[in-house]
Write a protein that binds this DNA or RNA. Sequence first.
RNA 1: GCCCCCAUCGUCUAGUGGCCUAGGACACCACCCUUUCAAGGUGGCGGCACGGGUUCGAAUCCCGUUGGGGGUGCCA
Length: 474
Amino acid sequence: MAQTPRYRFAPSPTGYFHVGGARTALYNWILALQTNGVFVLRVEDTDDSRNNPQWTQGILDALAWLGIDSSDSHFEGPYFQSANAALHVAAAEKLFEQGKAYYCDLSTEDIQKRAKESGKQNERQGYDGYSRDRGLGPGAGHVLRFRVPEGSTIVQDQVRGEVVFDNSTIEDFVLLRSNGSPVFLIANVVDDITQGITHVVRAEEHLPNAPKQQMIWRALGHEPPSWAHVPVLVNEQRKKLSKRRDKVAVEQYRQEGVLADAMKNYLMTLGWAPTGDTEIVPFQKIVSEFSLSSVNHSPAFFDIIKLQSFNADYIRAMSLGDFIAACEPWLLGEKAPWLAEKFDAKVFAEIAPLVQTRVQLLQEVPSMVDFLFCDLPTIDDVSYAKAFSTDWAVPTLVAIRDGFKTCEWKAESLKGVVDKVGEQNSLKLGKLQAPLRVAVTGRSVGPPLFEPIEVLGREVTLKRIDAVLVKKVS
RNA sequence: GCCCCCAUCGUCUAGUGGCCUAGGACACCACCCUUUCAAGGUGGCGGCACGGGUUCGAAUCCCGUUGGGGGUGCCA
C-alpha cells in the first residue's frame, strides 16, 4: 500500500505574507487535496532577528482567507520550527560522530582571504575544506560543516526532470553556527524527516539547496522526498518579486477588495493553465486538472492588471446578495467616506446592480455611491470644469431644474424632462447630462443617473443643482 | 567569476514531430450597443530569440550562440 502523500508549506515569518508564497501554498494544498494527502504547515521561525509573531498571524490569516486552514481535514499544523531546535542539533551532532561533518574554526574573513589567495574560485566555491582532516571538536567560534562527498548528486525534480550537480562545485556548507544554532539547511531537513514529508514543492530559488539537502537526508539514513521546484514570480523588470520593492502582500490585495477566489484562480494561471478556452474556472476544476509535470519552467510576471480583470469577472459573477454582503467592509465602519448614520443599506441595495458591473476592486465601491450618503457631493474640479465649459451648460441645467420641480419623481419621467430640454437645444442626452451628473454626483462618470436621482428625492436633487449653479455664478 | 534553471504575441498561457497559414486570455485599437462610465457583442494589432543539425516533415528532438532568471551567507 502506498503511503499517504505528505506535502508541506514552510514559510518564514519575516514580513507580510506574499503572493509568491500564496502560490506555493496553493500548489501544495491542491496536491494534497488531489491525492487525499496531507498539507503540513510549518512556520520556520528560527531567525530571531527578523521574526515577529505578527507575521506568523498574518500568514495564518492569509492562508485561511484562501481556504487553507484546519477546518479541512487535509490540513495539519501549524508546527513551529523553533520548537524542534534540540532535534536539529542532535541530528547535526550525529553527523559529526559519524564523520559526515566536521568542525572548523575559520571565520568568514579567513575563508575569503584563503579564497582570494588561492585564486581559484571554482573548487568548493568559497570554502576550500581547510578543516576537513584537522580533527577539531566543538568549541567557541567553531562551526560544524557537512563533509560533501565525492561524485555527483542527482535531484529528481517533478517539474524539471533530472538535475545533476557535480559535488565538487558544492562547498562544505555550515550545519551549526559558531553559537551552536542550526541553520536552515539542516533544520528544514530534520523537520521534514520527523514530520514524514514525502513531497517538497517549493520555489525555484531553492533548487540549489536541493542537492545539499538531499545529501543530508541520505547522511541521516533516509531516502529523500520527491522534489518539485516551481518557477518564481517576477515583477515587470523580470526580477524575483521582493517584499521591499514590489507590491506583494496578500493582505494588501485583500484590503483593496480582491476576492479570494479571484486571487486563487489568477495565481494558478501563472505557470500553468486549465484546459479549455477560458482561464477563469472553478477551483474544483483546478484541483482535478492540476499537475506538476505541466507547470511551466520559466518565471511568470505577476500582472496586477490581469488580476484585477479576473477580480472584476468574479465580482460580476456574484449574486446580488453576495455582492452586497461582500461590499459591507467598505460601506460600514472606518473605511466608509461618509458618516455611519448617513448610510442607508436599502438605498445601496437599489443601486448595487449598477455598481456591480463597474468595479474591479471592492474598494472602488464607495466612490461610486458616496454621493447618495453625503449632504452635498464633493465636486471634482476637473469634471466640473469640463462639464461647465460650454455656454449651454448653465441654461440647460436651469431648464432641467425647473422641469424637475414639477415632474413625476420617477426615473423615466426625470429622463423625459432631460430629453425634452435636449430636443429644445438640439443636444444629445450623452452631452446634456454631464452638468447634471456633476451637480448630483460630483463626478463626470458613474452609474446611470436617473435611478440614483429618483432615490435621492426631489428636495435633495434641487438643492444640489442650485448649489452648483451658485458655484458657477460666484 | 562559478553552479544551476529557462526561452511561443507587450503580458499569462495552449501546443509533447504532421490537426499550426500557431489557439485562448489580459492589455491596446476600431466598430456596434448605449444615459457618462462600465458591462456585452464584433473585428483588429501582435509571437515560436538566433544559427546549425536530426527527420519525408520541427514551435515541438539534439548542439551551439545570444538573451533572461535563480543561487553562490554562521538568512530562510
